[in-house]
């Protein structure tokens, strides 16, 4: 079986300590968890709502809990895992702030990634063409998108600041999922996907 991960997931995996406990919110078919369990001896659980994805994750032998993230994480105890991952899903939940804070209650650390609405292509489409952006990272039309809470890097960092969330690490990837000088220099303009490692407390 291939151990190649999508570049953004590879960065997430790199931030997770071997042998630690992980909760992967919106785990999909479980490619990240599968990798973490096999390669890093991580004890992990996935949360997923879609029937077909739950079946795929089960077929992989992953512990997956079918649940709507908008219902919160009440049943998971305080600091019951080391890391809670929310990969490219923040923008699709009803209460992103509540979920972020819940993540940092359940885990000692949280890893969040999301498509950057501040990316120049999005700005160009909205600012120049006057149309809602449709890009590689945001491929849906406005009337048919699961992404209901889009934000920019600056927005997210502001949210963290206002809620006492510490950003421990940030990586920004361009439209080819690379980290380059351009998006390191002007991440909110050239970054298409942003990944943050966070913890609670000032």
């Amino acid at each position: 079986m291939s151990t190649l991960l999508r570049p953004d997931l590879a960065i997430v995996a790199g931030w997770i300590a071997p042998g630690s406990r992980v909760l992967d919110l919106g785990c999909g078919e479980g490619e990240l968890l599968d990798y973490l369990r096999r390669e890093k001896g991580v004890k992990g659980y996935g949360i997923e709502i879609e029937d077909a994805r739950v079946v795929s994750a089960l077929r992989r032998g992953l512990p997956v809990i079918q649940q709507d993230l908008d219902a919160g994480l009440r049943q998971f105890g305080d600091h019951s895992v080391d890391t809670v991952v929310l990969s490219l899903t923040l923008q699709a939940v009803h209460f992103p702030r509540d979920l972020l804070l819940e993540m940092l209650r359940v885990g000692r650390e949280g890893i969040v990634s999301f498509p950057n609405m501040g990316h120049w292509q999005a700005r160009w489409q909205l600012g120049v063409h006057g149309r809602m952006p449709v890009t590689d990272a945001l491929p849906h039309t406005w009337y048919d998108t699961p992404n209901i809470h889009l934000c920019t890097l600056r927005d997210f960092e502001n949210l963290c600041h206002e809620n006492g969330v510490r950003v421990l690490q940030r990586v920004v990837l361009d439209d080819r999922r690379r980290s380059t000088w351009a998006n390191r220099l002007m991440p909110n303009l050239f970054g298409e996907v942003a990944l943050y490692r966070c913890a609670s407390g000032a």
């Binding site: 089960l58 992953l62 512990p63 079918q66």
Partner: peptide, 21 residues
Amino acid sequence: SREIVQALYAAGVDVSYTEIQ
């Protein structure tokens, strides 16, 4: 069933849960 899942999770057991429509 979610009570069972919650308790198994808290006990550190590998637990999967599905709610069938």
